[in-house]
Design a binder for these strands. Structure first.
Length: 469
RNA sequence: GGUGCCAUCGCCAAGCGGUAAGGCCGCAGCCUGCAAAGCUGCUAUCCCCGGUUCAAAUCCGGGUGGCACCUCCA
């Protein structure tokens, strides 16, 4: 397995801390609003990584956090009058639901910041004891970046002259401009606060991940050099979030946070990063309203995870057509039990995915398998062994890439209710009779009517089948 | 101002020094009562300029254009 390490800036062989095991931690969402397509892409990218490592035989432990205490959530509390818990449980539930729709496997560990306060306090305390952090008069606690000789190793940002240009907020009591808040003391009574040895307040964003990783992963790894194998997240988290995480963990624990760092590219709309400030965010729930989760998954995963992804409907439709082809093949071979996966096919897929998740190659391997199987079925429709192997092939695709697992007829009938289904069946029966009587005008009229209804039909050797167009 | 990434057929997208995968769209054919589906065939020399090399889309230098990070962000 080769992965691209964004710190080394090159593809490197994946050599886990523990033989045969892989621990992955991905920065999850701050739950103050609905998830957008960017959250989906990140989750999907690391879902693919996890599936690939599993298929290669690794025992994968996946962690993904929920930041459920944060300025923006508090702002939402003030705006809506709802409690913090009401808001966070709502958005966490929505997030998980939507990820389920996309076929993203649940993480093994899903820590929340509010449930990790003990670990956060401990880590900050340790940093204060080591003089790598300091409490200022307000009660805020800052990390002293000058105490970490390796600060900058993750993002490769070191230049001192950068300080003047950077937009980092300058606070009087900070020792160094780059120092960042580990803990934010409460200002008023309204605030959502927690008591600690240093002050009443709440955790800064960066410390959460470090503490949660330490709490859930590092213990199992004892005195290893690294806490986890892979730390992932969106490309925008590389700096300052991951740089800060790495520094805190290094100083507090004495070992490195992650052996490898992986970052996914952005979802763009019209060539620009999707963001709230630009007013072009695309919520996942809206996308799922219009498109099936599996189609969305296929589409969002069809571009390499490190590239930027320019979301548009035309490309999504093209992706859907590609997925449709797989399901049409599935219709031809189902029902039945799968035999063994074709060896060459399996190897080609794994080889592609082992190369830093080269999905483009993987999808082309699948397309070629589909075309070849169709060709063979055309010449020999009753080929039992081929059917069984194809079923197994598709099952393997579903395991590795997370699509193709639905019952094929159902896939093409998503969103069609029973009443409409009955009507379609009636029309198709009428059309068959007309055809039998060679009344082609009548049969074509029925077909036109179905087309108007958004139903495509195709006559096969096994009879007429229909699809939602 | 600093730091990165990217530029391949109409569209999406592989490629990582040895002579351009795959998909969508389009065209032609087979199949079909006609369609659809499926199958077959056809369609690019890789933003520009210079260099290195027997050989470059792939390496180096210089342009041009796009995007991102340096502030909360997947």
């Amino acid at each position: 397995m080769q992965i691209y390490d964004s710190v080394q800036k090159k593809k490197v062989p994946f050599e886990p801390i523990r033989k045969g095991e892989a621990s992955i931690y991905v920065c999850g969402p701050t739950v103050y609003d609905d998830a957008h397509l960017g959250h989906a892409r990140s989750a999907l990218a690391f879902d693919l990584l996890s599936r690939t490592l599993k298929a290669l035989g690794y025992k994968v432990t996946m962690g993904k956090n929920f930041t459920d205490i944060d300025d923006k959530i508090i702002k939402k509390v003030e705006e809506t009058g709802k409690s913090l818990e009401e808001i966070t449980t709502h958005y966490i539930a929505r997030y998980l639901e939507e990820m389920d729709a996309l076929g993203v496997a649940r993480a093994d560990i899903e820590p929340k910041a509010t449930e990790s306060l003990d670990a956060i306090e401990q880590m900050i305390q340790k940093l204060i004891e080591k003089d790598a952090a300091y409490v200022v008069s307000s009660g805020d606690v800052y990390f002293d970046t000058s105490k970490d000789a390796h600060y900058g190793d993750i993002s490769h940002r070191v230049g001192e002259d950068e300080e003047n240009q950077s937009r980092i907020e300058h606070t009087e009591e900070k020792r160094n401009p780059k120092d960042f808040a580990l803990w934010k003391a409460c200002k008023g009574d309204e605030d959502i606060c927690f008591d600690t040895a240093f002050s009443r307040g709440r955790p800064g964003w960066h410390i959460e991940c470090s503490a949660m990783i330490e709490k859930h992963f590092a213990k199992a790894h004892g005195n290893d050099t690294y806490s986890i194998d892979i730390h992932g997240g969106g490309a925008d988290l590389l700096f300052p979030h991951h740089e800060n995480e790495a520094a805190q963990s290094r100083c507090a624990t004495g070992h490195e946070l992650a052996k490898y760092w992986m970052h996914n590219g952005f979802v763009q709309i019209d060539g620009e990063k999707m963001s709230k400030s630009l007013g072009n965010s695309f919520f996942l729930k809206d996308a799922l309203n219009v498109y099936d989760g599996e189609v969305l998954r296929y589409y969002l995963n069809s571009v390499h995870y490190r590239n930027n992804f320019n979301f548009n409907e035309e490309d999504l439709l093209s992706a859907k057509k590609r997925l449709d082809r797989l399901y049409r093949l599935k219709k031809r071979v189902v029902p039945g039990k799968g035999s063994a996966v074709n060896k060459a096919f399996k190897e080609a897929l794994l080889e592609a995915m082992s190369d830093d998740l080269n999905v483009s190659i993987a999808l082309s391997v699948i397309d070629e398998m589909v075309a070849k199987a169709n060709e063979q079925l055309d010449s020999n429709p009753k080929e039992k062994a081929l059917k069984k192997e194809t079923i197994a092939n598709i099952e393997f695709i579903d395991t590795l890439l997370g699509f193709g697992g639905k019952e094929p007829y159902a896939y093409f009938q998503i969103g069609i209710d029973e009443a409409l289904k009955a009507k379609i069946e009636t029309l198709l029966n009428e059309r068959s009779e007309a055809k039998k009587a060679k009344e082609f005008e009548r049969s074509d009229a029925i077909r036109d009517e179905l087309t108007t209804m958004g139903i495509a039909i195709m006559d096969t050797a096994e009879g007429t089948v229909w699809e939602k167009a």
